[in-house]
Design a binder for these strands. Sequence first.
DNA 1: GAATGTCTGGAACATTTATTTCGCATCTCG
DNA 2: CGAGATGCGAAATAAATGTTCCAGACATTC
Lengths: 280, 280
Amino acid sequence: MTDETGTAAPRDFWTLRNLIVTRKDALPKRLAQVALYAMASPDDIAFGTAASIAEKAAVQPSTLVRFAQAFGYQGFSELQEVFRDRLRDRPSTYDERLSQLRAHKDGGSKTERLLAGFCDAAERSVGSLRERIDARQIEAAVAFLARAETIYLIGQRRSFPVTSYMSYAFGKLGVKTVLVGSAQGTDPETLAFAGPRDAAIAISFTPYASATLAQARQVSDQGTPLVVITDSPFSPLVPKLGVWFEVVEADYEGFRSLSASLALAMTLTVAVAEVRRQDG
Amino acid sequence: MTDETGTAAPRDFWTLRNLIVTRKDALPKRLAQVALYAMASPDDIAFGTAASIAEKAAVQPSTLVRFAQAFGYQGFSELQEVFRDRLRDRPSTYDERLSQLRAHKDGGSKTERLLAGFCDAAERSVGSLRERIDARQIEAAVAFLARAETIYLIGQRRSFPVTSYMSYAFGKLGVKTVLVGSAQGTDPETLAFAGPRDAAIAISFTPYASATLAQARQVSDQGTPLVVITDSPFSPLVPKLGVWFEVVEADYEGFRSLSASLALAMTLTVAVAEVRRQDG
DNA sequence: GAATGTCTGGAACATTTATTTCGCATCTCG
DNA sequence: CGAGATGCGAAATAAATGTTCCAGACATTC
C-alpha cells in the first residue's frame, strides 16, 4: 500500500484547483508539468483520453495516473470526473464559484440553502436566456403582436403567473388583452372571438397542460398568429408557422424558476408597446 | 456502402441542433427517442459513454450509432465530438461576460437592450435579495404558515403573479390555500372565513393597491397571522405584529422585476411544505 | 394475403482505454 | 565516492469501449 495523502481527494473542481496550485512547487518535475497543463487547459483534461492528454502535456500516460494518485484519487479517471463536473449542467463557472462560496458559509441552515438555491436557479435561468435568445426572433414576434387588435394570453398552471403579469403590464401600457386560463371553464367561448387580426401568446412547459394545447390549436385554426414560449423544440406547442421561444428554466428541488420566462415576457410586452407608440 | 445522406454532417452544435429538430418527426421511433433525449440533456451526450447514454435514453447502443449515421456521421463518437465542442468552445466566463456587457451597452438593437435590461434587473433583484434577507425571518414566517389550516394569498396587480404562483405550488405540495385578488368582487366574503387557525400572505408594492391593504387589515382584525412581502419598511402593510419581508426589485424602463419576490415566494412555499411533511 | 423493405435488438468483434509492473536513470545524503 | 531512495518511461495487461453484423419484428405495398 503506497497510500500517499491522508486527506480525501477533492470532489469539486475549485477545491482541487487550489490544492494543485499550492502544492505545485513541491511536486516532482513531471508532475508539476502535468499541473501546469491541467491549469492551462482544463477542458482538454475533461474531454481527452489519457493518451491524448499525455501527448499534449509531453508526459507519459503513467505520469497522469501518478498525478491523480498524488492528490488522493484512485486513478486518473476519477480526477477527470472532477474536471467534467465543472462543465456539467451548464453551471457557468461564475455561478459555480458564487454558489461554492456560499456553500463554504458553514453550509447554513436548511432555509438558507433553500433561498440560495432558488436565487441560483433564477440567476442561471436568466443567464441562459441571455445567451440563447436571438433578438431577431423577438423582433419577429413583436411585429406579429404589435399589429394585433387584441392579444390573447394562454397559460395554465406554472405559466399562469407569466400570462397574468403580461396581462397587467399590457393593460398599463394601453394594449388590449384577454387573459385565458382562469378557473372558469369559459375559455373556449372566449377564444372563439380570436381572429386573423388578433394575436395570441401561449406559454407552456413540461408537462404541457392539455388545455393550453387545445387552446393554442384553437386560435391557430382560427387564423390567429401565435407566439409560443416553451421549454423544448419538441414541445407540442411549437407551431409550424409563427414564432416560438425556447426558455430553459433552471430548477431547485424540482421547482423551476420563472425568472427567465418573466424577463422574456416583459421584453415582449414593452417592445410591443413601444412599436405601437411609434406607429399609432 | 450504405451512404444515406448526401449532405455533410454538421460540424457545429447549433447547426446540428436545428437539423435534429427539423428532421425529428420524420425519424423512426427509436431514433426520435434519441433525438428527444439528446435535446433534453445534451450534456450527458457530451460526457457519457455510448453505453451509459443508451441506458438513460432507454435505447440500444447500436441505435446511437445509427442515429449518428442518420445525420451523416461515420459513428457515434464523431457526433459526440460536436456535443463536446459546444462546451469546449465556451469562452472563459469573465471574458464572455465582459464582452456581453459591452455588446449590450454599446451596440445591439433596441430589442437586445430591452432584453438585456430586464435580465440585468432580474439579476440585480435576486442579488440584493440574497444579501438582505435574514434566514431567521424566513423561519419565523414558516413557523406561522406551517401550522395554518388554510393559507390566504392576498395580492393585486403586480403582486398577483406571485400569489398565483404560490397558489399553484402550494397546491402541488398538498397545502390548502385560497387565492384572493381575482377579478370578481367577492374577496371580502371569501376572506370572512379566515380565522386565528389560518394564516395569510399579503404581497404589495408601491403604489399599494387599496384592496390589498383593506384585505390585509381584514384578516388581521380577524386574528389571522399575517406574513407580508413589500418594498419598504414604511409600507402601510407592515404589521405591528407578525413577520414582514422587504424585497427591493430592480427596474428597467419603469417595469420592476419579479424575480426576487418569486424566489422568496418559492422559498417560503417549499419550506412550509417541508415542515409540514416532517410534522405529519 | 404474400412479399418487400425498413427498423430494432442483441451479441460478437476489434480496438482503444486506463492502469500496473518493472527496469533504468537521477538525485540525495552519509 | 557510493548506497539508498525516488522519479521516470516503456511495455504488458485486462477491462471497457464503439462499432459491426445478423436475425427477427414490423409495417407497407402490390
